[in-house]
Design a protein around this nucleic acid. Structure first.
Length: 545
RNA sequence: GCCCCCGUAGCUCAGCUGGACAGAGCGUGGGACUUCUAAUCCCGUGGUCGCAGGUUCGAAUCCUGCCGGGGGCGCCA
């Protein structure tokens, strides 16, 4: 059994076999390609390892009894003699269930080990150039616990898309123009002079701290800007988030990009002048009202530079723009999409992911995140207390569609309520096997020399089942822009690993050598799976804890 | 008033293009370490999937309407 090429996934084999079998039935609406055959993994083990509902789906429109059709299909599949398939049964209203021999999972093990860190990598993105813009916090203060959700999400999404064959860029848009900069500077100045910040200014304690370290001869706006930006870059870096490009709004003024954009819109005939202002007729592109681009006092609104920025992104060759915005900006989506379309692009080439708000609690009491009031939980504080891995994983536990409640006491407590330790522990245990083996002078035989057929323990198979599902999980997570699905998968794999570790000793003298080798390779495959999953999330896993 | 997100176990949340008795962690009750890390594992506890209709052979999942929570609807950013 010395073959080093990766075998075809069983799901592909089965889909092809089903599609082929269906050809003989001459059914209306039958899947034209094997990819269209619906396969699922029954929750109930009695229903087999894989199952298809094609008989149910096709019965009605063909005037057939679903169970009969299923029975005939099952018979055809039985006589086809598919590798690893032990039994083909019909159950319920017309499901065709496949019970597979453990050998199918042994091929999974081989596939994982051979692929290593590339297990689950795909080219579904076909090299599409995708620019992910995220965080983009104003340069008027530190990155706080609310921004961190977008930071963890955006970076994980970028990694996920890269792993799925996209050419990805990460960008941070700096709103370094506008009234908030003036307000920020005025607040710094006030604190530096021992006064209260002005009405509507920034009252956070950090303003006082920053003002204290601001040299007298510095321009507060420029110094504050540089300081805020430096802090943001530093803290995001500590979270393992690095941007390819920090894009300055100011630079667009300097380069004339904003005026060029306005001229472009004018040339496209989508701009009006009314009441002394310049308007984008965004209602023609699905917005619910037209939007002002240049105010009657001659100043740009925030919208125009944003449009210029998106125009620039496309001009730089990005094919798909993914913007990650907080829920408080969701009302802005239609006008941005309208603007993109007004510029002659497909509005579908701008995707805006809205991350719902993070609610922070301490002792069950909400902690407000407000830069202006000053009750601020900074990202830096969180990282200092638990480290970047726990912070990232915490934010990546759930869908960004859901409002998230983060209990700071739990995150900070390093208790086993924090899943990061559960996952890292699984990794540490696997690594300890290698470490202890090395101490004892034990060596593992080559993969092709290992008898993987010895792996038939439920715990062993559970690990392999989990690994088997990674490639499709990655594909789904990428398609849905949902990195939290990787988190869920990693937690499941870690659970399987702990069970395996507990019940299937590898280095014990009671474990026969053949079994030891097979399990050892299983541990290796599991280690690989954890590494791949955690890499996508940007979470590291120490070899020991 | 209009728009977006959410409403699943005591708590925090998963649940793929609708599938076969609804899952995890925490909490709670009880067990398991002379053996590769017990930050682990096992057993038990716990749910009218907000409510009401509809589509379907089949709905937590899709559609409609309510109810509840959050966030938006500026010549602010």
């Amino acid at each position: 059994m010395a073959h080093t090429e990766s075998p075809e996934p069983i799901t592909d084999t089965l889909r092809s076999a089903i599609a082929a079998a269906l050809v003989g039935f001459e059914l209306d609406g039958a899947p034209a390609a094997s990819e269209q055959v619906h396969l699922e993994r029954p929750a109930n083990v009695d229903h087999g390892d894989l199952s298809t509902n094609v008989a149910l789906a096709l019965a009605k429109r063909n005037g057939r009894n679903p169970r009969e059709l299923a029975l005939e299909l099952a018979e055809a599949l039985r006589s086809a003699g598919i590798a690893h398939v032990e039994t083909v049964e019909v159950a319920g209203p017309g499901f065709v269930n496949f019970h597979l021999a453990p050998s199918w999972l042994h091929t999974v093990l081989r596939t994982v080990v051979l692929a290593g860190g590339d297990y689950g990598r795909s080219n579904v993105g076909a090299g599409r150039r995708v620019l992910v813009e995220f965080v983009s916090a104003n340069p008027t203060g530190p990155v706080h616990a609310g921004h961190a959700r977008g930071a963890a999400y955006g970076d994980a999404l970028a990694r996920l898309l890269e792993f799925s064959g996209h050419a990805v860029g990460r960008e941070f848009y700096i709103n370094d123009r506008g009234v908030q900069m003036q307000t920020f500077a005025a607040s710094l100045t006030a604190r530096a002079e021992g006064r209260e910040p002005p009405e509507g200014g920034y009252h956070g304690a950090y303003i006082t701290d920053w003002a204290a370290s601001m040299p007298r001869d510095e321009d507060p706006l420029e110094w504050g800007y540089a300081h805020a930006l430096g802090e943001q870059r530093r803290v995001l870096g500590a979270l393992n988030v690095e941007f390819d490009h920090w894009f300055s709004e100011r630079e667009m003024v300097d380069t004339g990009a904003i005026d060029v954009t306005l001229a472009d819109l004018r040339a496209r005939g989508v701009v009006d002048e009314r009441d002394g202002a310049v308007w984008l007729r965004s209602t023609e592109f699905g917005d619910d009202k037209d939007r002002v681009l240049v105010k009657s006092d001659g100043e740009y609104t925030y919208l125009l530079p944003d449009i210029a920025y998106h125009r620039d992104k496309f001009a730089r060759g990005w094919e798909l723009l993914v913007d990650v915005w907080g829920a408080d900006h969701h009302g802005y989506v239609p006008r941005m999409k309208a603007a993109v379309e007004a510029l002659g692009h497909d509005p579908g080439d701008l995707e805006v992911v809205i991350t719902q708000l993070v609610r922070l609690e301490r002792d069950g009491v909400e902690v407000k995140i407000s830069k202006r009031s000053g009750d601020l939980v900074t990202l830096e504080e969180l990282i200092e207390e638990v480290g970047p891995d726990a912070v990232r994983l915490t934010y990546l536990l759930q869908s960004v569609d859901s409002p998230q409640t983060v209990d700071l006491d739990l995150v900070v407590s390093q208790s086993n309520e924090n899943p990061v330790f559960y996952v890292q522990m699984a990794n540490a245990r696997l690594n300890s096997i290698n470490r202890v083996a090395a101490e004892r002078g034990l060596e593992r035989v080559a993969l092709d020399a290992a008898d993987l057929s010895l792996l038939d323990h439920d715990r062993e198979l559970a690990v392999l089942r989990s690994l088997e599902v990674l490639p499709e999980t990655v594909e789904l997570a990428a398609r849905e822009r949902a990195p939290h699905k990787i988190t869920t998968w990693v937690r499941e794999l870690a659970g399987a690993v702990h069970g395996f570790y507990h019940d299937c000793p590898i280095l014990s003298p009671d474990t026969p050598e053949d079994l030891r080798n097979a399990r050892w390779w299983l541990a290796e495959a599991a280690r690989t799976g954890l590494r791949v999953g955690l890499d996508i999330l940007g979470v590291s896993a120490p070899e020991s804890m």
